[in-house]
Computed example of a mutant assay.
Amino acid sequence: YTLEELYKNGEIVSLLMAIDYRLYKRYGFDHCYDQIQYNLRTDELLGFRLSSKLRKATFEDAETLSRIYTKAMESLNGYAVRDEAYFNRFIKEVSSESGYIYIDEENNSYIAYYIQGDTFFVRELIYNNISSLKSMLAYIYNHNTQCKKTVINAPVDDKIKLIIANLKTCEIKLIPFMAGRVINFEKYIESLNSCNIDTQKINNKYIKIKVIDKYIKQNNSVFKISVYDNKIKIQRVEEDYDIELDINSITQLAFSYLNTDEILILNEIDESSLINTQKELLNALFEKRINYIDELV
């Protein structure tokens, strides 16, 4: 019922923070977001030095935090848009949980963290250059007499692992974080026209995909996806199809979490069943990227 209502209300995709994926996978939700978590001794950050001054964030910094965050997200995919109003709530939320937010405005970075017993827990460390990252790590080290351990949550392409002196003493975990689902497949494909897809390379190409969706009947059809005059088009057809995928696989492609080759392997589909132009089209539409989201529900 919920999925049908989402479709009727015009939603294109849905996100879900699932405790147990098994409960939702059969409804078409599948894993789309990871984070990495660093667990290290705080004194391992000894070699870093503060290169600029940090100051505690106030409500007057909401616009600055939004700007720093937006700049850092440029290389990432699937992130939440955060405006000034969002950061006003974010500051209240962190403060209500006895946490702290400090800004390095000179280097366009900020850190949101909590002191939990002897652990320095970093909820977010947003930076725009290596200099600011090193400075933030130095700031964390300055708490080493109070906090013997440090835990940092970060995007999977985070650079801390590249500058830590001794990775052998640092535990790095891959943390499954968020599931997603395509609600309206047609609208999703149409929305790709507003993305930066190089349609010149795939112009005059098409593929017919049979989508299997047990819960949203409007998605359960054969769709012809084509590119003509550099515009991506989709239409329902009563024809044979080139490839059959369930909504879970469609979702992981749509969220750019997996690429075409990985989906073919997972579904045990012989890649030779697709001609080169069809694979080129799929690869262009569903390019694998680094997903990141840190919205806690």
Rank of each mutant, 00 (worst) to 15 (best):
residue 171 E to D: 13
residue 71 K to F: 01
residue 223 F to D: 12
residue 54 L to K: 02
residue 160 I to N: 03
residue 22 R to A: 15
residue 103 I to K: 00
residue 262 E to M: 06
residue 181 R to D: 08
residue 223 F to N: 07
residue 166 N to W: 00
residue 170 C to V: 15
residue 194 S to T: 15
residue 92 K to P: 08
residue 215 Y to K: 04
residue 276 N to Y: 15
residue 71 K to T: 03
residue 268 E to V: 12
residue 108 N to P: 08
residue 102 Y to D: 02
residue 239 E to M: 10
residue 247 I to Q: 03
residue 129 N to M: 11
residue 122 V to R: 05
residue 20 D to S: 12
residue 205 K to Y: 11
residue 257 Y to V: 14
residue 297 V to F: 10
residue 75 S to N: 11
residue 111 I to G: 01
residue 23 L to H: 09
residue 17 M to E: 09
residue 182 V to N: 10
residue 164 I to N: 06
residue 86 Y to P: 08
residue 40 L to Y: 06
residue 125 L to F: 12
residue 22 R to W: 10
residue 151 V to H: 05
residue 116 Q to N: 14
residue 143 H to D: 08
residue 88 N to M: 01
residue 114 Y to W: 01
residue 2 T to A: 03
residue 123 R to G: 12
residue 162 L to T: 03
residue 79 Y to N: 04
residue 68 I to P: 10
residue 153 N to F: 15
residue 287 E to Y: 13
residue 265 I to N: 07
residue 250 I to D: 04
residue 259 N to H: 02
residue 231 K to H: 07
residue 228 Y to C: 08
residue 40 L to A: 07
residue 183 I to M: 04
residue 155 P to R: 01
residue 208 K to V: 10
residue 165 A to W: 03
residue 81 V to L: 01
residue 19 I to M: 14
residue 16 L to A: 04
residue 199 T to R: 13
residue 175 I to N: 15
residue 278 Q to W: 01
residue 74 E to Q: 06
residue 147 C to A: 03
residue 226 S to Y: 07
residue 224 K to P: 12
residue 218 Q to N: 09
residue 182 V to E: 12
residue 35 Q to F: 02
residue 28 G to H: 07
residue 270 D to K: 09
residue 58 T to V: 00
residue 105 E to F: 00
residue 92 K to Y: 01
residue 144 N to G: 04
residue 78 G to A: 09
residue 227 V to R: 03
residue 273 S to I: 09
residue 233 K to M: 11
residue 119 T to F: 01
residue 245 L to Y: 01
residue 162 L to V: 02
residue 22 R to D: 15
residue 268 E to D: 15
residue 209 I to H: 05
residue 82 R to K: 13
residue 124 E to D: 15
residue 176 P to N: 06
residue 295 E to Y: 15
residue 191 S to F: 05
residue 49 R to M: 08
residue 232 I to P: 13
residue 126 I to S: 02
residue 47 G to F: 02
residue 270 D to M: 06
residue 222 V to I: 06
residue 121 F to P: 02
residue 160 I to C: 04
